[in-house]
């Protein structure tokens, strides 16, 4: 990873967040936070509970619209993002508390990630045969690759609502990958997992980054995982940025230690 890290350092930014502030009524979730994500890196966002990490992901993918600041994604400066625009521009995400389509099979869930890549228009769908079917098969092939990659062949036809939590997280990653994202946002991909599942998930994240060159921004509470996986770490606390740097820098940063362990008064 060290070699790659040097390349990344020279690379250009895929995302620049500048002076973002977000509040809900009187609650300030994010206060004037700026950071960037370089193309091809794994960027971690950490911080105590309620620090504004998930809010930040929601701003990036357009669920929340910040009151101040700009989002510069792939060179286009915006005041706020829209979910549809984010999806078409190559931002995919997973959710903290698994947001899958519970009634649908693993296959259908991952196929839904191909939604924007499929172009055949509505009338053809009523006929089903012809263009619509051809397109369906073509995308099925891509999805099968992802299923192989994530080693979930056995649960292809299972409704995801019945799967154990660890596998649901994996299917959710699969759905995000099906979008062939340039920037992948992962909200606590390892929450609630046991050690073995965490190791698997870490491996998938590294492989995605390595094989597909996907830029990844992830929120995670497991410090061991964060320090191992990420190239750079952003630390938020009470909606403010308190540190930003390589894992080694973060480990020794006094602000971070204070935020996590508390300060003697």
């Amino acid at each position: 990873m060290n070699v790659a890290a040097k390349d990344i350092a020279k690379g250009q930014n895929i995302l620049e967040i500048d002076g973002i502030s977000l509040s809900f009524g009187g609650v300030k979730a994010i206060r004037d936070v700026s950071f960037d994500v370089k193309k091809g890196e794994i960027r971690a966002i950490i911080g105590p509970n309620g620090a504004g990490k998930t809010s930040m992901l929601n701003v990036i993918n357009g669920f929340y619209h910040p009151q101040e600041g700009t989002i510069n994604y792939k060179g286009a400066k915006r005041h706020d993002m829209r979910p549809y625009v984010a999806a078409t521009q190559g931002i995919a995400r997973t959710f903290q508390n698994v947001a899958l389509f519970a009634g649908m099979s693993t296959l259908d869930n991952i196929m839904s990630g191909r939604m924007l890549k499929m172009k055949v228009s509505l009338p053809w769908h009523f006929i089903r045969f012809g263009p619509a079917e051809r397109e369906e098969l073509e995308h099925r092939e891509r999805v099968e690759h992802i299923i192989d990659f994530l080693e979930i062949q056995a649960i292809r036809r299972t409704p995801v609502g019945r799967l154990p939590y660890g596998l649901q997280k994996r299917v959710e990653l699969g759905r995000a990958l099906a979008m062939e994202p340039e920037l992948l946002l992962l909200d606590e991909p390892m929450a609630g997992m046991n050690l073995e599942e965490k190791e698997d998930m870490s491996r998938y994240i590294l492989d995605v980054n390595d094989q597909f060159g996907t830029t990844i921004a992830l929120i995670e509470h497991d410090m061991g995982v964060v320090m191992d996986l990420s190239d750079r770490v952003l630390v938020l606390d009470y909606g403010e940025k308190i540190a930003d740097g390589t894992p080694d820098e973060i480990k020794n940063n006094q602000n971070v230690i204070d935020a996590y362990l508390g300060v003697a008064h």
């Binding site: 993918n61 669920f63 979910p83 549809y84 999806a87 078409t88 995919a92 995400r93 959710f95 947001a99 899958l100 389509f101 839904s112 990630g113 939604m115 924007l116 759905r175 979008m179």
Partner: peptide, 8 residues
């Protein structure tokens, strides 16, 4: 939410 995130 999930539907929005895949661009529906």
């Amino acid at each position: 939410q999930a539907a929005l995130s895949v661009g529906i």
